[in-house]
Computed example of a mutant assay.
Amino acid sequence: MDALYTAVATASGRDGRTVSSDGQLDLPLAMPPALGGNGQGTNPEQLFAAGFAACFASALGLVGRQAKVDTKDASVTAEVGIGKDDTDGGFGLAVTLRVELPEHLQGESGRALLEQAHHVCPYSKATRGNIPVEVVAE
């Protein structure tokens, strides 16, 4: 693949900072209280959720334009859960994408667009077969 753009960020761990090479992203990192931390910063799961939600919304816009359907009033909320992975004793992720569709996209036509977006979204491609991802139309 010839990259059209490459994002670069450096992190010093879950309790530290993450900074992008262009300085647009500069955030404190902290373990969430649910994992024993103080919650005084963002965490990788929040960053992944934000990226996946934005990417999926963009993919939905793309397939909407291709189908000549207006998707501008749709919004995507990504829920990224982290928990114990029973297969290896480490940790694993699971994602639920909750997509609020405008009224004109309720039903089968909206569901078909979501399936197409899930097929073309780079985050969906990266996670397919690796972690559970559920797409829910709301």
Rank of each mutant, 00 (worst) to 15 (best):
Q40H: 13
V95Y: 12
Q116T: 11
Y123K: 05
N38L: 03
V135E: 10
L60A: 12
V8H: 15
P28L: 08
G89C: 07
R65I: 05
A30C: 08
N130S: 09
A7L: 10
L35R: 03
L27F: 10
A53G: 09
A53W: 09
G129E: 09
A67Y: 06
A74D: 06
A112P: 00
N130A: 11
A59K: 01
G107E: 06
L105S: 00
T96D: 13
G92M: 15
G37M: 00
V8S: 09
K72H: 14
S12L: 06
G92A: 15
G129W: 02
L105F: 01
V99P: 05
D26G: 03
T6D: 13
M31I: 10
G89I: 06
L105W: 00
G16D: 05
D26P: 04
L97N: 14
F91R: 14
A67V: 05
T96A: 14
T10A: 11
L60R: 12
P122L: 05
H119Q: 15
A117M: 08
A126G: 02
R111H: 11
S21D: 12
A59H: 09
G37W: 00
L60I: 13
S21E: 12
E108G: 04
A78Y: 00
G23H: 00
V133L: 07
C55T: 06
A59D: 13
T18F: 08
D15P: 03
G51R: 03
P32F: 04
A117D: 08
T87L: 11
G36Y: 00
G81C: 01
C55S: 11
C121H: 04
V19Y: 01
A59M: 11
I131M: 10
G110F: 00
P122D: 07
V95H: 12
V76P: 01
V76Y: 02
H119W: 11
V136C: 08
Q66A: 12
T42C: 00
L93H: 12
F56D: 05
R65S: 14
L60M: 12
G37H: 02
V135S: 10
E115Q: 14
G89F: 01
P44E: 02
D26E: 08
G13Y: 02
D22L: 05
V63P: 13
P33I: 10
G16Q: 05
V120I: 15
A54W: 04
K84I: 04
I82H: 06
G23S: 04
A78E: 03
V120L: 14
T71H: 09
A11H: 09
A117N: 06
K68H: 09
E115D: 13
R98T: 15
C121W: 00
P132G: 15
G23A: 01
D86S: 12
S12R: 11
A7H: 12
V135N: 12
D73Q: 15
G37L: 00
G89T: 06
A50E: 01
V8G: 01
G37Q: 00
G13E: 04
E134W: 03
R111F: 03
N38S: 11
N43G: 03
A7P: 06
F91P: 05
T10V: 13
G89E: 09
P122H: 07
G13V: 02
S12G: 14
E138L: 14
A74Q: 06
T71L: 08
A74L: 12
P28F: 13
A54Q: 13
L101F: 04
T18P: 03
T87S: 12
N43E: 00
P132K: 14
R65A: 14
K68D: 14
L27E: 12
E79F: 10
